[in-house]
């Protein structure tokens, strides 16, 4: 047919692409990564060094500085997933960027819930003597974990990007509806976990000052890790989507070029 279809399309913007550095890092994420590393070092210093051992739990209390921040990040991640899903569904543009942010956030959330459960089981073994207890908060967290594994499975069902986005947005929003119901039902069922010590309604915090400070360092460090992972994962997802779209175009162009060859026309 025309000249453009006979020439391989990829050769056109090729040299420019190759000149650009591949990867998802920018100056901003590198600075953020540096700050995150410093925060982790700070957490290690306070969590393992400066903070005192507990009167009852002794050294094992140091698990607290990982256990609480990881679940905090997981909750934040799932709220972000729900909010991004909502924005995707209800905005007029239905921008895929929101869908990718929701997916990236859910992946990181699942990772951090897994960490919380793992670390919590170890801590439970040390303080309660068992890895697992059928108490309200543990059970809710386990169900939360499975629910979002299901969400991630739905994201991989296939279909177009917008099909994926719509399906997962519905699941992302339903999951938020589900969590209070699960928590309520399991609370009615049974409860053993210690009551919240920091976020108490009467405003009094029952914790040693230095331990509390170390915990805040932990929350800051893990929140920074979340933001850093989130930026990179969202960009990787954008690249994957672009590869899906672009890869198809390339294949089509190659097939057309084959069909246009003189020996192909008989």
């Amino acid at each position: 047919m025309t000249q453009t279809s006979t020439a391989p399309r990829s050769s056109d913007p090729g040299p420019q692409r190759a000149a650009r550095r591949p990867g998802t890092g920018t100056t901003a994420t590198r600075v953020l990564g540096g700050v995150t590393l410093v925060a982790i070092g700070w957490l290690v210093a306070f969590g393992l060094g400066f903070s005192p051992a507990d009167r009852d739990q002794e050294e094992s209390v140091r698990i607290l500085y990982v256990h609480v921040p990881t679940i905090w990040v997981a909750y934040v991640a799932f709220v972000v997933t729900a909010v991004c899903s909502g924005i995707y569904m209800f905005s007029r543009r239905h921008s895929l960027g929101w869908d990718r942010a929701a997916g990236a956030s859910a992946e990181i959330g699942v990772l951090f819930v897994a960490l919380t459960l793992l670390v919590g089981a170890l801590w439970g073994r040390l303080t309660w003597g068992v890895f697992w207890q059928w108490d309200a908060r543990l059970t809710t967290t386990a169900l939360l974990f499975v629910t979002y594994i299901g969400y991630l499975a739905v994201r991989r069902l296939g279909g177009s990007h917008h099909q994926r986005a719509r399906r997962s947005a519905v699941i992302g929003m339903l999951a938020v509806l589900l969590i209070p119901l699960v928590h309520w039902s399991v609370r009615l069922w049974r409860s053993l976990h210690q009551e919240a010590t920091v976020l108490r309604t009467d405003g009094q915090v029952r914790m040693d000052g230095l331990m509390l400070f170390s915990l805040f360092v932990g929350v800051i460090a893990f929140t920074l890790i979340y933001v850093w992972l989130m930026l990179h994962r969202t960009r990787v997802m954008a690249m994957e989507d672009a590869l899906d779209d672009h890869g198809l175009e390339e294949a089509l162009a190659a097939r057309r070029a084959e069909g246009d060859r003189p020996d192909g026309e008989r």
């Binding site: 739905v154 519905v170 699941i171």
Partner: peptide, 27 residues
């Protein structure tokens, strides 16, 4: 309805439904 018409729906459905109906089972 979410899983209908997709390959792998037989395995996906239990994963999605069972955590959701946990409160119903308890109640």
């Amino acid at each position: 309805g979410l899983a209908a018409g997709f390959r792998g729906r037989e395995t996906l459905l239990p994963l999605l439904v069972l955590p959701v109906v946990a409160p119903v089972l308890i109640g």
